[in-house]
Design a protein around this nucleic acid. Sequence first.
RNA 1: GUGGGCGUAGCUCAGCUGGUAGAGCAUCCGGUUGUGGUCCGGAAUGUCGCGGGUUCGAGCCCCGUCGCUCACCCCA
Length: 423
Amino acid sequence: MKYQAPKGVKEYLPPASAQFERVRDALLAPARLANYQLMELAIFEETEVFTRGVGESTDVVSKEMYTFTDRADRSLTLRPEGTAGVMRAVIESGMDRGQLPVKVFYNGPFFRAERPQAGRYRQFYQVGIEAIGSDNPLVDVEVISIATEGFANLGLRGFKLVVNSLGDFKSRNAYRLELSKFLSTLDLDEATRERARINPLRILDDKRPEMISALAKAPNVLDSLNPQSREDFSKVQQGLDALGIAYEIDPRLVRGLDYYTKTTFEFIHPQLGAQSGIGGGGRYDGLMESLGGQPLSGIGFGIGIDRVMLACQAEGIDISEEIPLACFIIPLAREWEFEAFRIGAELRSAGLRIDFAFGDRSLKGAMKAADKSGATFAFVLGERESQSGTVELKELGTGQVQSVRLADLATLLGNAVKRSKGN
RNA sequence: GUGGGCGUAGCUCAGCUGGUAGAGCAUCCGGUUGUGGUCCGGAAUGUCGCGGGUUCGAGCCCCGUCGCUCACCCCA
């Protein structure tokens, strides 16, 4: 084996690719129903979009970006996350000067140069949505509910939703100061002290047991929320309650991107191993402005398709394809191939999924192929059928055969597909 | 970047204390006339990840290297 996909690149081949599509579409459907619209975006950006957007101090920017120089010596970067690119496109197209809020969704591959492990890849896939230009906490609720709807579409149950509020800019900065003071009383190792200096909030995320106990007495963000932030967070909670969405409040939930303010949230699936976050997001107040746009607030989420697929697997959810192959057509010999193909094309344009026995194989081999294809029906096309305009249609599940006129084939197959869907 | 586990047929793996490689599944063909699934018979496939060392002899031991995988950090 000479060539292989680059390290950590996750690819989906049949039959898993059909599951990938289903998961992606199930996650996207609620966004469409909530009137979010598709953005098909650049997969690489000027590096500065991310350094300014995501923040220099984050791990994502400081050590995980795929950055390269093009022939004109421009520094470009494969997108490591979705929000910054959305903001750039919104500003570039002037959407931030039009009707607000701007509600958009996206999906596709993202890239981070990390060491791969279970559920973490260098090329991975996300769906995401952003609602830009409204401070209303109900928008936060809408965004979160779209995510939970997506999971519900798949029948996922084993995840939990964790929410927190970091407070608005003022509130967050005040807390940051307070937290720094507290952290300076702790005896921290070199790396942690450096992180604390760059962004003290991120220390709260530390999962090491000794750190968790050291942080037991750390000041709580929620206690330092100013009145406005407090009220907004309370509305978010009321909205979630009204929709019957279960959640936990975790004042330690900070998330690794610098732009978050106010609401942050994360979906955790405990059966997943070390990388248990299947999705997450939050509100960002200063992001648009720092990329040169209007001073608008926004909120959004990113959901990892790869991890949602793992979660479905862990819960034993069947995400296999449900549209069956209606019929497998077997030309008896080369001379019948064109006619078989013509019939197949007609059936396909009637909306039926049709496949053929290609290649010169024995009839037995062709029947075997029909069987393995999972088709509901199969028939042979040869001299007799061509003459009579009638085929012996075989139902592969039962072995039953019936004579069907070619003219009636489309209707009959169509009805059979409908019936099997109804079951 | 750091640490653990693993690299044998397309896939999943077996190979006892070192004696020149096997199973199941998958693939293909056949079991007489134009109909699959079960069953039976047959065929094909490996520089045992790569390089070096020890040995009369290495898939098995040693060293290096590459790859995969899991975990730390962090995130989807």
